[in-house]
């Protein structure tokens, strides 16, 4: 079975963590077309990260079938991942960590360059370009641990972009950011989507930050997709209010 027309095609997917009996996500059916910008929202623990990591094969699904770029996820993990830029949920960085921003951005190209091959000038050009795109070119030789939350997030985004991805998976890109930084990252995502028409899946627990170019919203709750549709319709629905209690956070 091969499905070429969609970027992502998940059929009745269920993912169970090792040592657990109940699946974190189940009965997930999702079709994503080329160039779509989708926000996946849901309270903490809804299974949003699990869904993203099932798509890029970091987590193995136990039920159903999953295809990315028409290839089955389980069989083609490595090839699929080279085409997917993943921005991980904000994590604590040791302020003394011995890594320069440019090396972190370059690390995004590692899979693409391939084993036993060295980075060429064209790879570095891609690094400079993607750092320029997020406005972080002046930070190239700065230590990664010395960045603010917003700057760090931009470097992670630039790292994903340096990969030249066809699909971007963003896990809570606005968490731990102040309002100004959130606006900056949002503008950046809109610009990237407009310019390159990359398919983007953005995961967030915050209702107030759905980027303007994002036309489709998926609501995930207790491991299941409970709503999937147009942005306006979903954000104004009553179910959203009951899930988030109208405050943007689950109580």
């Amino acid at each position: 079975m091969k499905k070429d027309s969609n970027v992502i095609e998940l059929v009745n997917i269920g993912t169970v963590y090792e040592g657990e009996r109940l699946p974190v996500i189940y009965d997930v059916n999702l079709t994503v077309k080329l160039g779509e910008f989708i926000s996946i929202i849901g309270p903490n623990g809804a299974g949003k990260t699990t869904l993203l990591e099932t798509i890029n094969g970091l987590l193995s699904y136990d039920k159903g079938q999953g295809f990315v770029f028409g290839r089955e996820i389980k069989k083609h993990k490595s090839e699929i991942r080279r085409e997917i830029g993943y921005v991980i949920q904000n994590f604590e960085m040791d302020p003394l960590a011995p890594f320069l921003c440019k090396d972190i951005v370059m690390s995004g190209r590692t899979g693409k360059i391939g084993t036993f091959r060295f980075a060429k000038k064209s790879d570095w050009d891609k690094v400079w370009y993607s750092m320029g795109l997020v406005g972080m070119i002046d930070f190239a030789k700065r230590p990664i641990g010395k960045l603010s939350g917003g700057e760090f997030q931009k470097i992670l985004l630039s790292r994903a972009l340096a990969q030249n991805p066809k699909l971007l998976l963003l896990d809570e890109p606005f968490s731990n950011l102040d309002y100004a930084s959130r606006k900056q990252v949002e503008t950046l995502l809109n610009r990237i989507h407009e310019k390159y028409n990359i398919t983007i899946l953005l995961v967030s627990h915050d209702l107030s930050f759905v980027p303007s170019r994002c036309k489709r919203v998926i609501v995930l709750d207790h491991g299941k997709i409970v709503m999937d549709g147009g942005r306006e319709k979903i954000l104004k629905s009553d179910i959203i209010n009951s899930i988030f209690n109208g405050k943007g956070e689950k109580t």
């Binding site: 490595s78 080279r82 993943y86 590692t110 992670l156």
Partner: peptide
């Protein structure tokens, strides 16, 4: 995890 996500074993 990020390294794994870029296709490194």
């Amino acid at each position: 995890k990020l390294a794994e996500s870029s296709g490194i074993n």
